[in-house]
Design a protein around this nucleic acid. Sequence first.
DNA 1: CTCGTTTGAATAGTCAGACTATAGTGGCGA
DNA 2: TCGCCACTATAGTCTGACTATTCAAACGAG
Lengths: 233, 233
Amino acid sequence: MPDRQHPVVADLGRRVATGELAAGSQVVPEEVAAQHGVSRSVVREALRVLEAKGLVQPKQRVGTRVLPPERWDALDADVIGWRVQGPERLAVVSDLEELRAAVEPRAARLCCERADAADLAVLAELAAAMRQLGSRGDLAGFTASDVAFHARLLRASGNASFVRLEGTFAALLKAREDLGTLPHQISQEVLDLHVQVAEAIAARDADRAEQAARELVDGARSEVLTRLGEPPP
Amino acid sequence: MPDRQHPVVADLGRRVATGELAAGSQVVPEEVAAQHGVSRSVVREALRVLEAKGLVQPKQRVGTRVLPPERWDALDADVIGWRVQGPERLAVVSDLEELRAAVEPRAARLCCERADAADLAVLAELAAAMRQLGSRGDLAGFTASDVAFHARLLRASGNASFVRLEGTFAALLKAREDLGTLPHQISQEVLDLHVQVAEAIAARDADRAEQAARELVDGARSEVLTRLGEPPP
DNA sequence: CTCGTTTGAATAGTCAGACTATAGTGGCGA
DNA sequence: TCGCCACTATAGTCTGACTATTCAAACGAG
């Protein structure tokens, strides 16, 4: 989020991740340079970035080729953002929700040991804000608070690996928003569960925190999936 | 693993990730170029890679500066490999074991729905191989099978996000090996649990598979942590 | 006819050096 | 004191030539 991408990276990344450039096809630097009106060095640097994200791999004499999807960094926020613009929307969102379901309950449990007073205050505040915004129907505000809530949960877990997933899940929620898979009316249950998670952590009740987080994330998951499954192309 | 790094990337990455280059310090391309006897463009491409991994951030007029550890991509195999060479060994391994504890049980559960015959065969085979090699004391062979077993488990879960963690966990196990935190004698319990996981998945018994995976990974975690905690510097 | 070897060519990789764009900083004037 | 402006450090870009690697096809020996 803090760093914006070079247009060449964004364009190539999107074209690869949406499948417009098929796996195995060749990316010719000179052509890309001409298309974007930039020099070869700019394209080379862009390709280094895409290489780091697992989208392409250069090889002397054979050229820089697009790698198959299983090589792509499925947890990279940019990759997620690009992929959801393609035909794999559902699979991407579904897989990430599954990961979230695995991670957040455990993070909530850890929070009970490691969260400090500031964490507790922020979580309570955000849960309250979500209840406000959600019942008022302010979708944008709700989503912002939602992202902040889950990000804080991960951070408060004190585990750098979980913190790393902040960006991943933020990209997931943003994707859900962009795709209009959010309900227009936030269910009371979801609002309550956020509050419950915050309260359980504040009470240092690990089992209850884990359980509430599990229900929350399982609920969100099934809701999104039915919504995504609904409109058949 | 398939792609080896450019020496400049490896050197700069290590120096940043071990803390030799402190957060906030400036990386001057010309100096790096001179140190490695390469041109500025090579250094620039290396910096693009490190930027993608969250290690540095360029800004006009102020220079390319080292970012604080919380910005680093804690799930990147290279970053893990570099960090474990520094003073943060324990924290890195511990955090990643925690993530593994969150993910693998869920992956095992998913396998019960999605694993195909080939997956089952490979898992059974690897579990058997581990028992063989483990009781024989062949550490290298054991670790290789261990990595393959868990990688296959993630792949068989059919979830791309989990598959993405293959490289992350492989780097974790490799780090454990390099640091000599593996026991010289593999415990019978660990060997049995691998077999149990494989059998439970084959039997499509989700609860048992999840439970066995949980025990396995929790056991591995506590064992590694006590071992890492043991030798006080 | 088959297999090893040489040669050619496609492509990534590297280099050098000049130039441009951006944005802190400090000075100068109102 | 405040705001504007010129200065300058640094990333970013461009150009074009050169090198290194490796695939593939031609070639030659057995």
